[in-house]
């Protein structure tokens, strides 16, 4: 099963993605809108796509195409989920407490 670069806890945040869809139907992410903790929006450019493989990520429960990307000089994984409706996700490193708070168990 896949793992995130940080190896720790991470939550997935859905993002608005600008993408190019090629002639074969393959999606290529170009840039996305990121909202920081102060609520400020910024357009984040994806500098390079290193690889794209189908992958499931257990900790966040994400299943889809995993894009290994260079963003701001760092390697990050962006996911394009396969379950309809398809969405783009970026991961945010969090503490265990924040992870448990985000993914709350049903009552």
């Amino acid at each position: 099963m896949g793992s995130l670069p940080s190896g720790g806890y991470a939550i997935r945040i859905p993002v608005d993605m600008y993408q190019i869809t090629d002639k074969t139907g393959r999606a290529k992410p170009v840039a996305f809108i990121w909202v920081d903790e102060n609520g400020a929006e910024a357009r984040v450019k994806i500098e390079k796509i290193i690889s794209c493989v189908p992958m499931a990520e257990q900790k966040s429960g994400t299943v889809g195409d995993r894009y290994e990307c260079l963003i701001g000089g760092k390697i990050e994984y962006i996911y394009y989920t396969i379950l309809a409706p398809r969405k783009w996700f970026r991961f945010l490193d969090v503490t265990e407490e924040e992870y448990n708070d985000y993914y709350r168990l049903p009552e």
């Binding site: 379950l83 709350r104 168990l105």
Partner: peptide, 11 residues
């Protein structure tokens, strides 16, 4: 478990 991965670790 896709929507809530914590369900993997509990009955």
């Amino acid at each position: 478990m896709l929507r809530n991965p914590r369900l993997r670790d509990v009955p």
